[in-house]
Design a protein around this nucleic acid. Sequence first.
RNA 1: GUGGGUUUAGCUCAGCAGGUUAGAGCGCCGCUCUGUGGAAGCGGAGGCCGUGGGUUCAAAUCCCAUAAUCCACCCCA
Length: 427
Amino acid sequence: MSVKRPKGTQDFLPAGSPGFSPEFGASNLNFLTATAQQVLERAGAKLIFTPVFEEAELVKRGVGDSTDIVRKEQFTVSHHGDHGGYILRPEGTASLMRAYMENGLKQLPLPLKLWTHGPMFRAERHQKGRYRQFHQLDYEIIGSDAALVDAEAIALMWNVIEALGLKHARIKLGSIGDAADRERYNAYLRERFTPLYDQLSPDSQDRLTRNPMRILDSKAPVDQELIADMNIQPMLDFLGEEAAAHFAEVQRTLHAWGIPFDIDPTIVRGLDYYRRTAWELHHEGVGAKSALGGGGRYDGLAQALGAKDPIPGIGWALGVERLLIAMQDEGLTFPAPPRPALFLAALDADQLAVTAELALGLRHLAQVEFAYRPLKMKQIFSEAERRNAVWVGFLGSDEAASQTVSLKNLDTGEQRVVAQAALADVL
RNA sequence: GUGGGUUUAGCUCAGCAGGUUAGAGCGCCGCUCUGUGGAAGCGGAGGCCGUGGGUUCAAAUCCCAUAAUCCACCCCA
C-alpha cells in the first residue's frame, strides 16, 4: 500500500468498514447537513453553494493578510504548473458575500438568509478536531444590522446544536465593538503591556504587536499570573454608545428567548472584518481549543471586498468534525445508514435471472439487493445478515416452478411463500 | 513553524537483554453443510516488521535520517 490520502485529511467510510470510527461514518455527514437544513430552512435560509477554490485576492481581502490563515495556511491551486492565483477556500463567509455581491442577490427579500456546507482547507498541522480538509455548516444573514438579526443567528446555531442532541455545549458571547472601539482598546492594551514586555511569554510578546487582545486568553502561566495582578479593563468597557446598546439588546433578546449564554469579555476574532457581536460555541470533548464553532457580525466585509456602500451581515460556522467528536463524546448515537428491505438469491443458476429481474423491479419501492451467483442456503442467510436485510428471499426449483419466492423475516423469524407478482406487497 | 508519543497481516495488537522459516485475536476465502440464519471444527490466502542509511557474523529488535500518524503549542471550525 504505497498511495495514501493527503496528510491531514480523512476518509469518511461506510459503516462496517475495518478501521471504521463511528463519529466519522460517511452517513453522519448527511445526518448533520439534513439536521441543519431542517432548522435553517424553516427560518427561511436559502441553500447556496460556491466554488471550493477562489481567487487568492478574495481571501486576502476578506480574511485579512495579517491572519495566520493567509500568512501560512493557504493551499494554492496551480494549473499546468502555473500558479493560477487561486487558493482553496479556508472558510465560507467571504465566498458567500462575494456571491451575494456578484450575482445581485440584494434583489431577493432582505435581509437574505443563506446557508451552505462543504469542505474548507487550511494547511495546518492537524490535531484532534483540526484537519487540513474539514467541513463546515455555514449560516449568514446579509442586509440588516438589527440586533434582532444577531439574536436570531445565535438562536439558530443553538437550535442546530439542540437538534443534534448535544447537551454540554456553551455559548460564549462578547462584543468587539465598532472599528474605532477596537482601536482604542488595542491602544489601551499596548499601553498597559508594553512596559511589562520582558515579563510576557514569547508568544504574547508577538501578540502585543499583532493582536493584543489575544494576550488576555493566553494559556502561558507567566501571562496568566501577570494579567491577574494588572486589573485589565475588558473590551466591553470600551464599547461606543451604539455598539453597547446593540450588545445589550442582543443579550436581552436571547434572555427573552431562553437561549443560554455566558458573557465572555475575552472573545477575540482572528478575522479582520468582524464588528460588534462575536461569539463562540464551546464543548469540552473536542480537544485543545474546544470550539465547535464561532460567529460574528461583519459589517466591514463588503467594503473590504470592493463594495461602494457598506453591506451589514452576520453569520456563523460550525465545524462538522468537531460536532461529530462532541456527539461521540456525549455518547450520542448516529442514525444507522439505510438497510436493505430485501435480499434475494437463487439456489441454482436457472433462477438467477429471475431474482435479478425481481430485485430491479422492486427498487422503486425500497432498497433491494440480490446475489450475482447461485448460493447455498447457508450462504444466502449469511449474506443477507451481513447486509442487515429485513427480509431474505430465495428461489429454488420449487419456487421457480410455482412462480413464488420463499421469504423469511430476519428480525422476527416470520416465514412465508408469496407469488412473485405479489412481492411488492410484503415490502 | 515548535515539542512529545506511535508506526509489525484487512483491523486491534504481541514479539524488542539482536540469533536463523515473524505471531495472536478478529475479519476474509474454502470445506464439513446438496432447501432455511448469527455457531463450531478443519484448512487457506494475506507481512521484504513505514522508508532510507549505519553498527554487527547476524537487525522487527541498537544508532541516525526521513515520512506518515496521534496529541499539545501557535492559531482556528
